[in-house]
């Protein structure tokens, strides 16, 4: 008897020897994964999307001295619909973040986000600024962080290699983008600009805090009225 690792959720299945000799039994994903990942990791197309200072280093990385074409990444696409990777290259401001989330939503899966530089990762030196988002990971799932201000082209390539390594770890069998029944599952709510940036996932908290405040005001007004009476 052979115990085959099919990778299926039902667990291992016992298979008679005579069948095992003649029929392929095994993990198809394990066979296909290297091929699948090899082709994906060597053709990651980024969006033509520069935000700030880091974008200059990103362009330098793509130009002839560092030559991203060696990694199959030189095809910067101007539309998110043809690209696999979004390099958040620079400070994300509150005014810009709705656009970024919308672009991310338009990217087809599998999609990756690389946060380049201190600003994109955590706000950087501008973190305290009133118009700065303190880290794009508050709005998008980030795959690789590249520290530096700005990261040199070599540091960026190092990050891209890290992304390739991450892709190598993924498997068709568990890839989330094949498992979704709901087509809008990968869509993130686009934040809104009100008096300040509003994350729609936090609406309940915001409403609760506003209600708290109202209650406090009425309460203190009531106390005052009582004191006056």
């Amino acid at each position: 008897m052979t115990v085959a690792d099919t990778g299926s959720a039902n667990g291992d299945i016992a298979i008679p020897d005579e069948v095992a000799r003649n029929v392929f039994i095994g993990n198809i994903a394990k066979l296909l994964d290297p091929l699948y990942n090899w082709s994906r990791r060597n053709s990651i197309w980024p969006v033509t999307f520069g935000l700030a200072c880091c974008a200059i280093e990103m362009i330098c990385t793509a130009s002839s001295r560092y030559d991203l074409a060696r990694f199959g990444m030189e095809v910067f696409r101007a539309t998110p619909r043809q690209s696999d990777l979004m390099i958040i290259s620079g400070t994300v401001t509150k005014k810009m973040v709705p656009v970024i989330v919308r672009l991310y939503n338009q990217m087809p899966e599998p999609r990756y986000v690389l946060s380049m530089g201190a600003c994109a990762s955590g706000g950087g030196p501008f973190k305290e600024g009133y118009n700065v988002v303190d880290g794009i990971d508050k709005f998008l799932p980030v795959d690789v962080y590249v520290p530096g201000c700005p990261p040199t082209p070599q540091a960026l390539i190092n990050g891209l290699i890290a992304l390739q390594e991450k892709i190598d770890q993924q498997s068709i069998a568990t890839a989330p983008w094949y498992r979704k029944d709901d087509p809008t599952a990968g869509m993130l709510p686009v934040p809104v600009l009100g008096p300040d940036l509003v994350d729609l996932r936090q609406l309940d908290i915001i409403r609760a805090k506003a209600a708290d405040y109202e209650a406090q005001v009425t309460e203190s007004a009531g106390v005052e009225a009582a004191a006056q009476a």
Binding site: S121, G122, V144, Y145, P147, G148, A155, A162
Partner: peptide
């Protein structure tokens, strides 16, 4: 040392 890319900033950064 500029090769600091990481997958998780909460622990590494």
């Amino acid at each position: 040392d500029y090769e600091l890319a990481s997958y998780d900033r909460s622990t590494a950064h």
